Simulated scan of single mutants.
Amino acid sequence: MGEKNKPYALITGASKGIGKSIAYELARQGCPLLLVARSEQELKALSEDLQLKYGINAAVLPLDLSVNGASQKVADWIKANSCRVGFLVNNAGYGVWGDFSRSALIDQLGMMQLNMNVMVELSHLLVPILSQEKQAYILNICSTAAYQAVPTLAVYSATKAFVLSFTRALRFELAPTSISVTCFSPGPVDTGFASRAGLDALSKMAQKFNMQPDEVAKMAVKAMFNKKSEVIPGFANIISVYANRLLPKAFIEKTAAGIYKV
């Protein structure tokens, strides 16, 4: 499976949304891919299209990463196939919307497992592999929700705050090495995320403000290659994050609660 001239990019949550668009962007630049997601059918279709269009190798591993031990299976898969890996794109994640006390605990814990634990596990397992490259990259897909508490998305925004904090610290620790670490925090993106989270009303309202996944993916990959520490795409998203720093927390949280109200 290995290609000798270029290292592979491992992308989680690769079958949909931003992860899928990042796969296309890296393939366009000639990067061979390791694609991980739950849907075997969608992954195989993606792999075939990428290989046909760009002539790169795109190996797939259908796997539910939220299941305990899944991250180790990914690492074992890489080692079994003697793959050089120079990129880790931690993209897999989802949101659960609703009042915390009324939302199913199993859904909240599953979200925490995927959004936080899997990212930590894969980063820990792959740093030794990435460090073998002269230049390697970790790209963690975060969210503007990381910068504030969001009522009715309480656990989701908290998981993204974790991603942001972890990425900042990991970047500092790995600075003396060959591994660059980037945190990329988009706002609303037209990926179907809002509908899957149960935010149908917001999904319709946000259509006017959504960025497109291909546009976001290009910005994310560019930020990674430029070794940026922290990037928020879109002027409106940048303004909203800076407003969170300047305005009272109570005002920000009340405003968010009004937007995302049940």
Score class of each variant (00 low, 15 high):
2 G>L: 14
3 E>G: 10
5 N>T: 07
8 Y>S: 05
10 L>I: 05
12 T>W: 10
17 G>S: 04
18 I>T: 07
20 K>T: 04
23 A>F: 04
24 Y>G: 10
24 Y>W: 15
25 E>M: 06
26 L>A: 13
28 R>E: 15
30 G>L: 09
32 P>Q: 07
35 L>V: 11
35 L>T: 05
36 V>C: 11
36 V>E: 04
38 R>D: 04
40 E>R: 13
41 Q>A: 12
41 Q>R: 09
43 L>Q: 04
44 K>C: 08
47 S>Q: 02
47 S>A: 12
47 S>L: 02
50 L>K: 03
50 L>Q: 04
56 I>Y: 00
56 I>W: 00
57 N>P: 00
58 A>V: 06
59 A>R: 05
60 V>S: 09
62 P>Y: 04
63 L>I: 05
63 L>M: 05
64 D>T: 07
65 L>P: 01
67 V>F: 08
70 A>I: 02
72 Q>W: 00
73 K>N: 10
74 V>H: 09
74 V>K: 07
77 W>P: 02
78 I>D: 03
81 N>S: 13
81 N>G: 13
81 N>D: 13
85 V>P: 00
86 G>A: 12
88 L>Q: 01
88 L>W: 02
89 V>W: 03
90 N>W: 03
92 A>D: 03
93 G>S: 06
93 G>K: 02
94 Y>S: 01
97 W>R: 02
100 F>G: 07
104 A>K: 14
107 D>S: 14
107 D>Y: 10
108 Q>E: 15
108 Q>N: 14
109 L>P: 05
110 G>I: 09
111 M>E: 01
111 M>L: 01
113 Q>W: 04
115 N>E: 12
118 V>F: 06
118 V>N: 06
121 E>C: 01
123 S>H: 05
125 L>K: 13
126 L>Y: 03
126 L>S: 01
128 P>D: 15
130 L>K: 06
130 L>T: 08
134 K>Q: 14
137 Y>M: 02
139 L>C: 06
141 I>W: 02
142 C>D: 15
144 T>G: 05
148 Q>D: 06
149 A>D: 12
151 P>A: 13
154 A>R: 08
156 Y>H: 10
156 Y>G: 04
156 Y>N: 03
158 A>P: 02
159 T>K: 08
162 F>D: 00
163 V>E: 03
166 F>V: 00
169 A>L: 00
170 L>D: 09
174 L>R: 07
177 T>Q: 04
177 T>Y: 06
177 T>N: 03
178 S>D: 04
179 I>E: 07
180 S>T: 04
182 T>M: 05
183 C>N: 13
183 C>A: 15
184 F>P: 00
186 P>Y: 02
189 V>D: 03
189 V>R: 01
192 G>N: 09
193 F>T: 03
195 S>P: 00
196 R>D: 12
198 G>A: 09
199 L>G: 07
206 A>E: 15
209 F>Y: 11
217 A>F: 13
218 K>I: 00
218 K>Y: 01
222 K>Y: 10
223 A>D: 07
223 A>G: 05
224 M>A: 13
226 N>C: 10
226 N>D: 15
228 K>V: 06
228 K>R: 15
229 S>G: 12
231 V>P: 08
235 F>A: 13
236 A>M: 15
238 I>E: 11
238 I>P: 01
238 I>H: 11
239 I>F: 08
241 V>I: 10
243 A>T: 06
244 N>H: 11
247 L>E: 08
248 P>G: 09
249 K>E: 15
253 E>Q: 15
260 Y>W: 14
262 V>D: 13
262 V>S: 12
